[in-house]
């Protein structure tokens, strides 16, 4: 048993999926925390996105965070490639299918559709990068007017880029659809990751599963409210 055998066997590939998946879940928490700073505007309109812009500035200018960004990209890359490989390999294991499908007799539709949900999330991710990550890192599209932060630094005005981006209904709807896909993906993925890592204790599994269901609802909901809040004028 060498290392490559351990991580390329049928179980090994799943271990890679679960470890990268849990890492991406931890990223979601950070991403959500930073972005939730936009809600300051809801309680204090005079903030005008300052709190969020300061948080975004910190994330963009801190060396450790920038190094973690590389790890994050590696995590995304491995999770996506491995997921697609597994999906196609698993499908190839039954060349001739059934006339009558089992359907929902015994499993949930979203558990069986992780490949599809993941592909929707990948497409959403590409659009999301185009909207925010690429302008902030490279093109400065929509960020031509820097903003003076309350801590004295001059930074990209990500808050108003969000506001401008979410002024169109189709973008708001696509983002909400992305969040719904994320919710279903997490609904299966959260508990499945722990199963794959060997959590068989029923007491602990129930705890993890309950937490996972809550996480899968709350996190995508907070994300989905962001484009909606801008569009409805609740903030910004």
């Amino acid at each position: 048993m060498n290392w490559s055998q351990l991580f390329t066997s049928s179980i090994g590939k799943k271990i890679v999926m679960s470890v990268t998946g849990l890492f991406l879940i931890s990223f979601l928490v950070v991403h959500m925390g930073v972005n939730a700073c936009i809600y300051k505007d809801f309680f204090d309109p005079s903030d005008n996105g300052d709190m969020f812009n300061r948080a975004a500035d910190y994330m963009g200018k801190t060396v450790v965070i920038r190094l973690m960004e590389i790890v994050l990209f590696a995590g995304f890359f491995i999770h996506i490639i491995q997921g697609l490989v597994l999906e196609f390999q698993n499908r190839s294991k039954r060349k001739l299918g059934y006339q009558v499908q089992m359907g929902n007799k015994g499993s949930k539709w979203y558990s069986r559709s992780m490949g599809l949900l993941g592909t929707i999330l990948l497409l959403f991710l590409l659009l999301h990068w185009w909207h925010f990550w690429i302008p902030s890192r490279f093109t400065e599209r929509g960020l031509e007017n820097p903003v003076l932060l309350s801590n004295g630094r001059v930074s990209h005005d990500m808050f108003h880029l969000m506001k401008a981006t979410f002024s169109e209904w189709w973008i708001v709807i696509v983002y909400i659809a992305g969040c719904i896909s994320l919710a279903w993906h997490l609904m299966h993925g959260f508990q499945s990751a722990f199963r794959t890592l060997g959590l068989h204790n029923d007491r602990f599994f129930k705890l993890v599963n309950a937490f996972g269901i809550g996480f899968s609802v709350v996190v995508p909901l907070i994300f989905a409210l962001m484009p909606l809040s801008f569009k409805m004028g609740w903030i910004g």
């Binding site: 179980i11 390999q89 007799k105 015994g106 558990s111 069986r112």
Partner: peptide, 18 residues
């Protein structure tokens, strides 16, 4: 199991149900 050509488990639970 891998050599025989079975797939990976994705924890859907269909096996347990049947």
């Amino acid at each position: 199991m891998d050599k025989e050509g079975f797939g990976s488990c994705t924890n859907t639970g269909a096996c347990e149900a049947v």
